[in-house]
C-alpha cells in the first residue's frame, strides 16, 4: 500500500477549490457542530463542480479542513476504486495537490460515502461523511419547522413509530441503513446511509467524524469519544447484520460483505466491501505463507 505523493496542484485554483471566505464560513459551522454533537448546523452550501448526490457536502467539508500535509483517502461504499471515489480523489489532487492513498492506516482525512473502514480509526484521523438527507425525522414529519422544534424539545417519540412499523410489518427492525442513533443522550441523528453494521463503530470512536449535506445545507459532527447509541425497543434490541459465510477472498468473518454476481447462471460470491481491508489481509496472508 503506497501513498501517491503530493505536489501536482493546478495553480489556477485556490487551495482545495473553495475560496478562503467560504472555507472560513464552513469551519465556523464545523466548530459549532463539534461543540453540539449531533446538532444539524445550517451552512451556506456552495455550488460544486459535481451534481448533488455525488458528495457535494462531503467535498466542501473536506476542502475546508484539508491542509497541504494531509494524506487523503476517499471511499465509495467500502471501495477506493469506484467512480465517485476516484473522481473526488483526483479532484483534490488537482485542486489541493495533497497526497492520496488507499490505505486506511496512512490516511489523515478519509471522505466516505456510506461505509466506515473496518480498521479502527485513530485520534489523528478525520472521517468525513457525504450525507444525502440529514434529518432523521424527515419521512415521518415533512415540516422542517416542526422537526427543528422536535429536536429542540427532545420530542423524539415519533422516531420509535418508524421502528414500531418495521417490527409490525417484518417481525423485526428491518431498517438496515440510515439507522437512527442518539448522540450523547441528547440529539437523535441520522448517521447518513451507512449500513447499521457500522453504527457501533461510531460509538466512542477515537477519530473526529464530520457530516456534510450539500443539497440540504447542513453540517453535523461527532467529536472523538462521543457516545452514539442506536435506538431500539427493550424486547427488540439493536442488532447488526451477520453473514453465514466468510469473505471469499480474504476469509474475514468480522467485515461487512457485498454480494457480487459472477456469471449469468445464478453464481455469486460474498466479498469484503472495504477493499483496502480485504487487500491488506490477503497481502498479510501471502507474506505469512512465504
Amino acid at each position: 500500500m503506497s501513498i501517491e505523493p503530493a505536489g501536482c496542484r493546478d495553480s489556477g485554483y485556490n487551495f482545495a477549490y473553495l475560496n478562503e471566505q467560504t472555507k472560513k464560513m464552513i469551519r465556523r459551522a464545523l466548530l459549532k457542530a463539534v461543540a453540539i454533537p449531533g446538532y444539524q448546523v445550517p451552512f451556506a452550501s456552495r455550488e460544486m463542480p459535481m451534481p448533488y448526490g455525488w458528495g457535494t457536502g462531503g467535498v466542501q467539508v473536506t476542502a475546508s479542513i484539508l491542509t497541504p500535509e494531509d494524506v487523503l483517502k476517499v471511499i465509495d461504499q467500502g471501495a477506493d476504486d469506484t467512480t465517485n471515489a476516484v473522481s473526488i480523489r483526483k479532484f483534490f489532487r488537482r485542486t489541493a495537490g495533497v497526497a492520496t492513498t488507499e490505505a486506511t492506516a496512512q490516511a489523515t482525512v478519509i471522505q466516505t460515502r456510506h461505509r466506515i473502514p473496518e480498521r479502527a480509526l485513530g485520534p489523528d484521523q478525520i472521517l468525513v461523511y457525504q450525507v444525502p438527507i440529514p434529518e432523521p425525522l424527515r419521512f415521518l414529519e415533512p415540516r422542517e419547522t416542526e422537526t427543528r422544534k422536535m429536536h429542540a424539545f427532545e420530542d423524539y417519540g415519533l422516531m420509535h413509530v418508524k421502528l414500531y412499523e418495521d417490527i409490525s410489518q417484518h417481525g423485526h427492525i428491518a431498517t438496515t441503513y440510515a439507522y437512527p442513533v442518539k448522540v450523547e443522550g441528547r440529539y437523535v441523528m441520522d448517521p447518513s446511509p451507512t449500513p447499521k453494521f457500522d453504527n457501533p463503530k461510531m460509538d466512542n470512536c477515537a477519530a473526529l467524524q464530520l457530516f456534510g449535506a450539500g443539497r440540504e445545507k447542513r453540517i453535523y459532527a461527532l467529536p472523538p469519544f462521543t457516545s452514539v447509541v442506536s435506538l431500539d425497543f427493550e424486547d427488540h434490541p439493536f442488532q447488526v447484520q451477520a453473514w453465514e459465510h466468510p469473505c471469499e477472498l480474504c476469509g474475514a468473518r468480522d467485515s461487512y460483505l457485498d454480494e457480487v454476481i459472477i456469471d449469468d447462471k445464478g453464481g455469486r460470491m460474498f466479498v469484503c466491501s472495504d477493499t483496502d481491508y480485504c487487500a491488506s489481509r490477503r497481502m498479510a496472508a501471502s507474506e505469512a505463507a512465504e
Binding site: 417519540g157 420509535h160 414500531y164 425497543f233
Partner: peptide
C-alpha cells in the same frame, strides 16, 4: 412512545 414506552410487546 412519546411518553417513553420502549417495550414493543
Amino acid at each position: 412512545m412519546a411518553n417513553n414506552w420502549r417495550h414493543y410487546a
